[in-house]
């Protein structure tokens, strides 16, 4: 057990290390001189040299990497010349909004997948099953940014039920005091239910737009796994004890069906990170995703580098959580 944890931890470190190298090399192999981008096309050769020295570009590649990674670990994530701010400050300002959106998107995807996965398999009605399968295919086939657009057209523009892009909270509402940085949680901590409801109102459409793709995967996996599990003899044995259909599903079928679904969660999370970049742009969400798009277009690579490393760390972290959950749910893994 201990050995497995250590080797897993080591594997995670190697993956993050590899990601940091790729992120670093990515900047260095690009055509064009990063220092030139900073000083501008009209600057003199001396100014360029001076800037290169300031950025450590005169060093050998391994030295540059060492400088970059040690700096990164100490909180020096580079400087965003596009925004005129240290990258770390930008991330600190914008990451909470992204994580909050990602959380609700995953929540939506998960709850919808469980409800519809159950609906598709519970009474074995072919029509319901076909409808759920179609929804899953649509969920996976819809470009998130396009869905965001459709949701805005229908629910904001045509029906007026949900607010449009640009804000996280109505202007008329006093933002709750910042504790966690997540508006909904801060509102709950402050006991401000009006602000909470308003924040959810603003979160709803972007969360659905972002959660639709993960929903498509999850419901597809969960449905297939539930079908497999409910065809197992042990479900009949549970039923033969007199246990009702609902308890059979909640106590036995779902936990068993979750096991293979968990494995896919890492990939699903990667999807979420990628999707957030697109959805945030449509909703003008003040998160990290829209920052990254803008930075990519501005060739502001320090931001992109940091984002790549951060997302690799998040990815590895999520997979580690998945592994722990695995051990909790599945006794066959535990020993």
């Amino acid at each position: 057990m201990m050995q497995a944890v250590v080797s897993r931890l080591f594997g995670s470190l190697v993956a993050v290390f590899g990601a940091s190298i790729i992120a670093f090399l990515f900047l260095r192999v690009l055509p064009g001189n990063p220092a030139r981008l900073v000083v501008g096309p009209l600057a003199s050769e001396e100014a360029l040299q001076a800037q290169m020295e300031r950025m450590g570009l005169h060093l050998s590649l391994p030295d540059q990497y060492w400088r970059y990674i040690t700096g990164f670990l100490q909180g020096d994530w580079g400087f965003s010349y596009g925004a005129g701010q240290p990258v770390l400050v930008q991330f600190a300002n914008r990451l909470p909004a992204s994580i909050e959106l990602g959380f609700y998107a995953f929540l939506f995807a998960f709850l919808a997948a469980v409800v519809l996965g159950l609906a598709a398999t519970y009474r074995r009605r072919p029509a319901v099953d076909a409808a759920v399968r179609a929804l899953s295919v649509f969920g996976m086939g819809m470009p998130p940014f396009w869905l965001a657009l459709i949701l805005l057209v229908v629910f904001h523009e045509a029906l007026g039920i949900f607010p449009g892009p640009g804000l996280q909270l109505s202007r008329s509402i006093e933002p709750p005091p910042v504790v966690t940085g997540f508006i909904t949680f801060d509102a709950l901590i402050a006991g401000d239910l009006t602000a909470f409801a308003d924040a959810i109102h603003y979160l709803f459409l972007p969360a659905v737009a972002l959660g639709m793709l993960p929903f498509g995967y999850l419901v597809r996996l969960l449905r297939a796994n539930l079908l497999d599990v409910t065809n197992e003899p042990f479900i009949l044995v549970v039923r033969s004890k007199g246990i009702g259909l609902w308890k059979t599903f909640s106590r036995h079928a779902l936990p068993n069906a979750f096991i293979p679904t968990l494995t896919a969660s890492g990939m699903i999370f990667a999807q979420l990170l990628g999707g957030s970049v697109l959805v945030e742009k449509v909703f003008n969400w003040p998160g990290i995703g829209s920052l990254v798009v803008d930075s990519i277009l501005r060739k502001d690579f320090a931001v992109v580098q940091a984002f790549i490393i951060v997302s690799a760390v998040i990815y590895v972290f999520v997979n580690a959580i998945v592994d722990v959950l695995y051990g909790i749910i599945d006794p066959r893994i535990r020993n």
Partner: peptide, 21 residues
């Protein structure tokens, strides 16, 4: 291991980074 390292990135972000690069 190289394949694993590529897989550790969100595919879309990596594709974007490579493209812009």
């Amino acid at each position: 291991r190289l394949m694993d390292a590529i897989l550790a990135f969100p595919p879309l972000i990596l594709a974007m980074a490579v493209t812009v690069g």
